[in-house]
């Protein structure tokens, strides 16, 4: 490393904007201000173990899990269609998958509001048909829908990029050796696409667990997720200590699940986005 100095600006940047803030979060999470001044405490972490907050965490993990599973079930076939040679309109389809990502995240989620509202597009259509209006907004379903809609491309693209790289002759070789299309998928295509699946899951699950915009807009504040909880501590209740503790707990959880993921990914190099 003769040109180590080239890294210095980056190192400074990382220290200023990542390391120092992280230290501050750790700092805030273990102190409180009392009459005697600042003292060390673990009460913020203890507070997290109250049932109401555990419930919030479990709900976040649960909704994110459901969204991830739905994304996988919807995204894998779509990725396969995109990667197949025979499909004529795949360029158009690929573009349709990518285009929403060019639009503002908030805007996309607001769009769903107008669709799902009591007097929104869908309900207007339903009542036009003479059917009773439905509660489409402010429930778990709406939150999951928002997550799936926003994060689906992050599932499709990594899987697609792995599938398209699978050599067609490998599939032919499997057919040649007696595998019908189901066996080809089970023994060759799916195992080879695992790196894409793993990074797809990571890329959907992580933001889904921590989101607060989707749950606030589509869940109407009734579905507090861990992201909302953290947001509240900093913006509304001013309990920075508790907010920092929550953030740290989230980080540890994410680190933990990343470690598990990368264990599955270890041998299959390439393809993934992580």
């Amino acid at each position: 490393m003769k040109k180590g100095w080239i890294a210095y600006p980056y190192v400074v940047w990382l220290i200023m904007f990542i390391f120092v803030p992280l230290l501050l979060i750790v700092f805030y999470s273990v102190i409180k201000t009392t009459d005697q001044g600042i003292v060390f405490t673990l009460e913020h972490f203890q507070r997290f173990f109250e049932p109401i907050y555990i419930m919030v965490l479990l709900r976040s993990l649960y909704l994110a899990l459901i969204s991830t599973v739905i994304c996988l079930l919807l995204g894998y076939p779509l990725a396969m269609i995109l990667a197949s040679k025979d499909y004529r309109h795949k360029r158009v389809l690929l573009l349709l998958v990518v285009i929403p990502m060019w639009m503002n995240f908030l805007l996309r989620t607001y769009a769903w509001l107008t669709l799902l509202e009591k007097n929104g597009v869908i309900n207007s259509f339903i009542s036009f048909l003479g059917l009773p209006k439905m509660e489409l907004l402010y429930n778990q379903g709406a939150v999951v829908l928002g997550m799936v809609y926003n994060f689906l491309p992050f599932m499709v693209l990594p899987i697609y990029s792995v599938l398209i790289k699978i050599d067609k002759s490998i599939i032919e070789a499997a057919e040649d050796l007696g595998a019908n299309s189901r066996v080809v998928f089970r023994k060759v295509i799916f195992p080879l696409s695992l790196p894409g699946v793993v990074s797809g899951i990571t890329m959907v699950y992580m933001p889904a667990v921590t989101t607060f915009v989707i749950s606030r807009l589509l869940g109407g504040g009734q579905f507090t997720l861990i992201g909302n909880l953290i947001e509240q501590q900093f913006l509304y209740t001013g309990e920075w200590g508790f907010g920092s503790a929550l953030s740290l707990i989230m980080m540890i959880l994410i680190l933990f699940s990343m470690a598990i993921m990368s264990k599955y990914e270890k041998e299959n190099e390439g393809g993934g986005l992580f």
């Binding site: 002759s169 490998i170 080879l192 299959n268």
Partner: peptide
Amino acid sequence: TVFQKYALFPH
């Protein structure tokens, strides 16, 4: 068949 590029299963 023995394929031109061998087509072995990499996994």
